[in-house]
Simulated scan of single mutants.
Amino acid sequence: MQTIRNIYCVGRNYKLHAAELGNEVPTAPMLFGKPTHALVEANGQEIELPGNRGELHYEAELVIHIARPFAEGAKLEDIVDKMALGIDFTLRDVQSELKKKGYPWMLAKGFPNSAVVTAFRPFPGLQACLETDFTLVKNGEQAQRGNIGDVIFDLMTIIRYTNEHFGLDQGDIIYTGTPAGVAATKNGDHFSFLWGSENWGEFTARLV
């Protein structure tokens, strides 16, 4: 996989997902990060994930790759050159305990292989993204289906906010939020990522 610099993630960016977890809908993008050790490409292999720290939830997302630094007035297609589909894996029980204590989420979000991603493809432009759903298929059945048009904060809002608060440059990637349908992962679950009807990648979860 190409060199990735920073991994940013947007939490609660779909209203139905926020509702299913009993969370308030945010009024500004809710950003967190993952270390680069979290990143792994889905190319048909088994991926090891923690199976002894409570429920492990999958969260399918559209992932964008940043081509150049943000500049006010630039178009989305000037800043984003590639995209992929991915999963932000979350140790939900661990996250719930961290929330109760007011602690950061890193232990629940940043473990190795917690940022699964397909190979990146050329960014087709915003209109093509609005016209195409992405789907996570688990064991042959649809688990999640989303469209970037349903987000609370659109891609340019996310990019501008990320740049303002953390900086943004070539090689950074952003997980843009997950639609409703997150659930626990079991050992041996097989996941496939669909862009429209096209399979972009797959893997099997091995809980250890």
Rank of each mutant, 00 (worst) to 15 (best):
Q2P: 00
Q2V: 14
I4V: 13
I4T: 08
I4M: 03
C9T: 06
C9R: 01
V10D: 01
R12L: 13
N13L: 05
K15A: 15
L16G: 07
L16K: 15
A18M: 01
A19W: 07
L21P: 10
G22D: 02
G22C: 02
N23D: 12
N23I: 11
V25T: 14
P29Q: 07
K34S: 00
T36Y: 04
H37G: 06
V40L: 10
E41W: 06
E41L: 08
E41K: 13
E41Y: 13
G44K: 03
Q45F: 07
Q45V: 10
Q45Y: 05
E46K: 15
I47D: 03
R53G: 08
E55G: 14
H57W: 08
E61N: 11
L62P: 04
L62D: 05
V63E: 03
I66G: 01
A67E: 14
F70Y: 15
F70W: 13
E72W: 06
G73W: 12
G73D: 14
K75V: 08
L76T: 12
L76W: 10
E77Q: 13
E77N: 12
E77Y: 10
D78W: 06
I79L: 09
I79H: 02
K82Q: 15
M83S: 08
A84N: 03
A84F: 03
I87P: 01
I87Y: 01
I87W: 00
L91I: 04
D93P: 02
V94C: 09
Q95R: 10
S96I: 10
E97P: 01
L98H: 02
K101D: 14
G102L: 13
G102A: 12
W105P: 07
M106T: 15
L107R: 10
L107G: 05
A108D: 09
G110H: 04
G110S: 09
F111L: 10
V117Y: 01
V117I: 15
F120H: 07
R121P: 11
A128M: 08
C129K: 00
L130V: 06
L130H: 11
D133K: 04
F134T: 01
T135R: 09
N139K: 05
A143F: 06
A143L: 02
R145K: 15
G146K: 06
D150W: 05
T157K: 11
T157G: 06
I158N: 02
I158F: 01
I158R: 02
I158C: 11
I159V: 14
Y161V: 13
Y161H: 14
H165L: 15
H165S: 10
F166A: 08
F166I: 07
Q170I: 15
Q170Y: 15
I173E: 00
Y175I: 03
G177A: 12
G177Y: 07
T178P: 02
P179Y: 05
A180V: 13
A184F: 09
G188R: 03
H190F: 08
F191R: 00
F191M: 04
S197C: 14
E198A: 11
W200M: 13
W200Q: 08
G201W: 00
A205C: 04
R206W: 01
L207I: 09
